[in-house]
Design a protein around this nucleic acid. Structure first.
Lengths: 183, 183
DNA sequence: GGAAGCATGTAAAGTGTTACATGATTTT
DNA sequence: AAAATCATGTAACACTTTACATGCTTCC
């Protein structure tokens, strides 16, 4: 009997607990602080209900871990949770990435605009990519370096991917702009 | 008084109606057939309720347009819908793109794997990008060319973006694999 | 005659966000 | 003393998907 597969947000929580972020607050802070929401976000409300569900279903177990008079629950993976997470990490199937990009959608509707307005749209897309690249370089990359010594080597790879993707996208839009201007 | 902004899925429906896809079925078929779901999807259930809402709120108007004994409703934009769509197309703000990628998330958790397993994960990510590139080139690009003469010039740009992005991503993953093997 | 495609919808469930509510501790 | 941060949760709403339900037309 194989347990039903969990949803991606569940694996996110399992992975962070396994990585040493044991409280709901710490999990959420890491998702925000390390810019994980660039690839998979989760809000406080979602995390606390996810933790409750995962504990009810036997994937994690929590124990009271108060800090002075401030309550805190520290979770750890059970053997079942450990197995579920590692099986997922090693599974050969990779679900297709999902993109929801209003910008690209607008670009697809570009024929509803005049040529000049189309160029403006492309310029906005390029500016957005340039801004995003800067954010990856200035915010996420330093953070990734700072956790490197703690055993999070792959964080730097993800940050690099984000920065270089946006640089590539900016070049792509610039090229299309040039082609349009010269035709 | 400015009307409350619509959601992105509403603009998707408005744009397709304006582009000549006037029935719910045709809208959904275009989203699937032209691979629009790569950057913004919508199901039948969503489209029909969206059409009802947009008509109730005065953005579109439908008239009966039966094909033989088979019912059909053809919609067109009202002046209000026309204005809402064009204002959105020209608005300077571009919401940040949203990505939900289980693959990149797993990569971020790569330190939970052995070096060999990490390399396998990277190889899977590369294979997925290569497959996706092929699909864009073999399926979406020909479709984009076929609608070009109908005035949909930007569809080809979007298809090109999809193909070239995936080619870029495959190269990125290959480079990381090389770096890891040689260190 | 059956399969595939055209056409429209409902019901239920899943997934996720925002806003609200509370209270302790640490930093300025 | 106030502000920021740590910590947990509820309620309401927003959005989307899956499964189901129906019936007509065209192609093989």
């Amino acid at each position: 009997v194989s347990a039903p597969p969990l949803k991606t947000s569940s694996y996110l929580v399992l992975g962070l607990i396994r990585g040493g972020f044991t409280s709901g607050y710490a999990i959420r802070a890491t998702i925000e602080g390390m810019r994980m929401s660039m690839y998979w976000g989760a809000s406080f409300a979602q995390i606390y209900s996810e933790l409750a569900q995962l504990e009810r279903d036997g994937y994690i177990s929590g124990r009271e871990d108060p800090q002075g008079g401030r309550q805190r629950t520290a979770y750890e993976l059970t053997r079942q949770g450990e197995e579920a997470f590692m099986t997922w990490m090693k599974s050969p199937e990779l679900p297709r990435m999902e993109v929801r990009d209003e910008g690209i959608m607008r670009l697809g509707f570009g024929d509803h605009l005049s040529p000049e307005e189309g160029l403006e749209l492309l310029a906005r897309l390029r500016a957005r990519a340039e801004l995003s690249e800067r954010e990856f370089r200035e915010e996420m990359m330093p953070l990734a370096d700072s956790v490197r010594e703690h055993g999070w080597h792959y964080a730097a790879t993800v940050a690099q991917l984000g920065a270089e993707y946006n640089a590539w996208a900016a070049r792509f839009f610039a090229e299309i702009e040039d082609q349009m201007r010269s035709s």
